[in-house]
Simulated assay, not measured.
Amino acid sequence: MGLLGDKPIIGIILDENTSQGGASYDTGKGYFKAIEKAGGVALGLPYAADSLEFARQHCAGLMSTGARIKFPSEWYVPGQESYAPQSDRFAIERALVEAFLAEDRPYFGICNGMQMLGCLSGCRMSGDAKSYTDGSIAHDDRTTRHGVKVTGGTKLHAITGLDHLQVNSFHREALVEMSDQVVISAYSDDGLVEAIERPDRRFVMGVQWHPERLIEETSDAAALFQAFVTAAYDWAKAARLQPSAL
């Protein structure tokens, strides 16, 4: 289970058009292309209870996409809350991420997916990321490119082999209070947390930027997906020897 032939199956949490009422799934093709280019099989997971059981039976890895959905107020620093729309995505995404964390299956969170990972790991958010910076980077602009400093000794550093990356940016919220369950693996040049890892898990990472939009531009973006797919493949191969793990 978890493999189609020799390719690991990756479940991708679908996004939706929350800005238009959330009536349609609306997910960029780049997420799927990045997984496929790295040698995986990408399958979209809708916001249905059966997605959890399907993913646990058939997916070797889980990837959470960007989104604009409301998180609980207790996930924010005191005095702040989310102004994003309510979404039925939240409940199934939380259940999926919690299940994969509990079973030590590979997980890769992008933008919203990093924030979900962080908050489920004891971190707290701000809905006003720019108030934690000097204003030199427009983090809520899809055309933005900015630098991030990679922390030595982290999985991100091992994967990219670089101390400094150039990334894109499109977010208004950010993790601003960290827990001891995570390691910060990158900061933006203006000081925001841009990547986190769970050192107690085989492959659990989150990045604030959108590497799926950069795989044709930078080798480090493609390397992230390759490392994730490889980790999922290794998990699936090991799980075949332990059927009870599925």
Rank of each mutant, 00 (worst) to 15 (best):
Y31F: 14
Q208M: 14
S24N: 09
F203S: 01
L4C: 14
Q80K: 08
D200C: 10
G161A: 12
A129P: 04
K29P: 02
Y31R: 08
A222S: 12
A238E: 14
A34L: 01
Q181T: 08
I12M: 04
K149I: 15
S73D: 15
G153R: 07
L14H: 05
F100C: 08
K37P: 02
S51A: 14
A138S: 15
L214S: 03
W75T: 11
M114A: 12
E36L: 06
E93G: 01
F228Q: 10
G147W: 06
K70W: 01
K33D: 14
H164G: 00
A174W: 02
K237E: 05
M63E: 02
G113L: 01
I137R: 10
P46Q: 09
T27M: 08
S121P: 02
E93H: 09
R89N: 06
A55I: 09
R124S: 14
P199Q: 11
M1C: 08
S244N: 10
T218S: 13
I92N: 00
N168E: 11
H210N: 06
R240V: 11
T151I: 12
G161I: 14
L96S: 04
R124E: 13
Q226I: 10
E53R: 10
H58S: 14
Y31A: 03
V182I: 15
V150C: 12
G21E: 06
S82A: 15
P199H: 14
E53C: 11
E216P: 01
E16G: 02
R172S: 15
D15W: 06
V150G: 12
D234M: 09
C123I: 09
A34Y: 00
R145L: 12
V183L: 05
L117H: 06
S19P: 00
I92Q: 02
H157P: 02
G39V: 07
D163Q: 12
R94Y: 05
T230L: 15
T143N: 14
L120V: 13
L117E: 04
M116F: 00
A186Y: 01
T230F: 09
F170I: 04
F203A: 08
G109F: 02
M114G: 07
L52F: 11
M205V: 04
A239F: 10
D6F: 05
S188K: 02
D104V: 04
R142G: 05
F203T: 00
A195F: 05
A232C: 15
A227C: 13
G5W: 09
G5Y: 05
F170R: 00
E173L: 07
C123N: 09
L120E: 06
V167F: 01
D128P: 01
H157G: 13
D15S: 15
Y107N: 07
G113R: 00
